[in-house]
Computed example of a mutant assay.
Amino acid sequence: MSDCLFCKIANGDTPCNKVYEDEDFLAFHDIHPKAPTHVLVIPKFHLPTLADATEQDVALLGLMMDRVRHIADKELHLDAGYRVVINVREGGGQEVFHIHTHILGGKKLPF
């Protein structure tokens, strides 16, 4: 989508503080961190929300969780633990309508 911020970041049109990239996903530091480590993982394919996912997206979602694990363990070294969050729609706190996961860590997180 031409007006999607995360599509622009994935396409290299908007800069980011990149942590990881492969052919399907990009991970970068959140510009408004909620924890000492706060990284977003986005697919390079536009999918507005988790609620918009269909059976055809199952492989993408599974691969996204695998990348989250890899990034948290191998790139961010969050050995003490981390939280993974997916906000869904405006009522769930989603601000950018391109599915993404938040990796939060670097301290013990409250519930």
Rank of each mutant, 00 (worst) to 15 (best):
56 Q>T: 01
38 H>E: 09
67 R>T: 15
79 D>P: 02
95 E>H: 10
55 E>F: 00
83 R>D: 09
91 G>L: 09
106 G>A: 10
98 H>T: 08
27 A>V: 08
79 D>K: 13
109 L>Y: 02
12 G>K: 10
81 G>S: 08
72 A>Y: 03
67 R>D: 13
64 M>F: 00
94 Q>A: 07
86 I>P: 05
76 L>C: 01
47 L>A: 02
2 S>W: 00
49 T>I: 04
21 E>W: 07
71 I>V: 15
76 L>Y: 01
62 G>F: 01
19 V>N: 03
95 E>Q: 12
53 A>D: 06
76 L>W: 05
17 N>D: 15
96 V>Q: 14
79 D>V: 05
73 D>I: 08
12 G>C: 10
40 L>Q: 05
5 L>P: 10
10 A>W: 00
63 L>P: 04
90 E>T: 02
81 G>L: 01
52 D>Q: 11
35 A>M: 04
4 C>D: 15
55 E>A: 14
68 V>K: 00
43 P>F: 00
91 G>S: 10
40 L>W: 02
20 Y>V: 08
38 H>G: 05
94 Q>L: 12
75 E>C: 12
6 F>L: 08
102 H>A: 12
103 I>S: 06
13 D>P: 01
90 E>A: 06
31 I>R: 01
92 G>F: 14
31 I>A: 10
27 A>D: 12
17 N>I: 08
14 T>W: 04
106 G>C: 06
92 G>D: 04
76 L>R: 07
14 T>M: 09
6 F>H: 04
5 L>Q: 11
65 M>T: 11
75 E>K: 15
56 Q>Y: 00
12 G>D: 05
44 K>S: 10
16 C>G: 09
57 D>T: 03
47 L>G: 01
17 N>Q: 13
108 K>L: 12
16 C>Q: 07
11 N>T: 06
50 L>F: 15
6 F>Y: 04
81 G>R: 03
19 V>P: 03
41 V>L: 14
101 T>N: 13
58 V>C: 12
50 L>H: 04
24 D>K: 03
82 Y>R: 06
55 E>Y: 00
37 T>D: 03
75 E>S: 10
94 Q>T: 00
76 L>E: 02
